[in-house]
């Protein structure tokens, strides 16, 4: 990296703030820029005939918000909710419309900063996860840290409505 960014700690180019959480036995991270809040799961309303990815609705401070399960597209094992289960409330653009969604987390760890230099692209072959749905992989201690590509995951569930791809990775 260039000298300037190492001279200025916290410069935007050197890293990003993320929230880390556990899902399907793996460690995942989502940018805090997208994170509105973390909630304890309340009553979930099942949406009949919806895809398993967005099978429920929750009440987030008076707004009806879809509850999404990243384990479905990332092909992870799905376990039932327990006392550690949380909902990450995210602000995203869905088909060009600013929307709020909830994402299930088996356990939320911390808000931290990861260095861009420590991230790698996912190899197309031999990866445990669908490569086109993961924007990068890093390391945290002796574990992998998966950064899911939320744009790719959500736009695949818009049923062809709205622009096909939003290049905001």
């Amino acid at each position: 990296m260039n000298e300037l960014s190492t001279l200025r700690p916290g410069a935007e180019t050197s890293g990003r703030d993320v929230v880390t959480f556990r899902l399907g036995g793996e460690l995942l991270a989502i940018r805090t820029a997208n994170l509105r809040e973390v909630l304890e799961p309340g009553a979930v309303t099942r949406v009949p005939n919806a895809s398993p990815f967005a099978a429920g609705l929750i009440n987030v401070r008076g707004a009806v918000v879809p509850l999404c399960d990243l384990r479905i597209p990332l092909r992870m094992p799905v376990a039932g909710a327990d006392t550690d289960t949380r909902v990450l409330v995210l602000d995203l653009e869905l088909g060009g419309v600013a929307s709020t969604v909830g994402v299930i987390a088996e356990r939320v760890h911390e808000v931290t900063r990861i260095e861009t230099a420590a991230l790698e692209e996912v190899p197309d072959v031999g990866s445990r996860w669908p490569a086109h749905l993961v924007s990068a992989v890093g390391r945290r201690g002796d574990e992998f840290l998966i950064i899911p590509d939320l744009d790719a995951i959500f736009s695949a569930h818009l049923g062809g409505a709205g622009p096909a791809s939003a290049n905001t990775a």
Partner: peptide, 19 residues
């Protein structure tokens, strides 16, 4: 009446949701 998210747009049998 609350509108449903675009993720559920294809489920035409629901016109919305309420709390």
């Amino acid at each position: 009446i609350k509108q449903l998210s675009p993720l559920h747009a294809e489920l035409k049998m629901f016109s919305g949701a309420t709390i």
